[in-house]
Amino acid sequence: MADPLFEEGFLTTRLDYVVNWARSNSLMPMPMGLACCAIEMMAFAGPKYDVARFGSEAMRFSPRQADLMIVAGWVSYKMAHTIRRIWDQMADPKWVISMGACASTGGMHRCYGVVQGCDNFLPVDVYVPGCPPRPEAVLHALMDIQEKIRNDYSLAQDYTAGKIETLDRALVGAERPRIVAPDGNRIVTPDILYTQN
C-alpha cells in the first residue's frame, strides 16, 4: 500500500468499507463477568435479547479469539492485573465496553478494595450506565462499537491528520496504531475521525 495511488484511492476506501462491514458484524466478545452485571450480560447473549442478530453470539473465553472485552462488574485491585493481562493477550484490533456503574466509576463500592473505574488501566470505548444496565443498553453499546468500527480507517490512510508511518513506537508502545499529527509525535484523539465525514 506504499504506492500513493492506493493510499486513499477508490480501491482502498471500498476495501475499507468491506473490511469494516465484516469486522463490525462479527465481533467476538470476551465476557469479563466479575459481578452481578454478568447476569445481565448472559441475558444479552441469550435467546430473548439475542445478540446473534448483531453477529456477536460467539462468546470466546480465550483472549486470543476475542476482539471485544465486556467488563461487567466491579474490578478489585487484585483482579485489575489479571484483566489487564487478558486485555494485552487479545489480538488487535480490539475494543472495550465498560458495563455498569461499577466498571465505569466504582459505583456504590466506594471503598479501598475496588478500582474506581476500569478506565484507570483500560482504554474504554463505550461506557454503559445502569446498575445493572438492561440488556438493551448493552446491545446499544455494541451497536455504538459497530458504528465506531464502520467509521474507522483500516486500510486507507487518513491524511487529514498525518501519515501512519510517522508513528513513534516509543510513544505508543505496542498499542494499536494511532493517528499521529503532522507536526510531530503527538497522538491525535480519535474524535477527529468522527468530525471529518
Partner: peptide
C-alpha cells in the same frame, strides 16, 4: 477509602 500508595494498578500501556 484506603491508604494512598498501598495498592498497585497496571499502567495504561504494556
Amino acid at each position: 477509602l484506603g491508604i494512598p500508595g498501598s495498592l498497585p494498578l497496571p499502567g495504561h500501556l504494556p
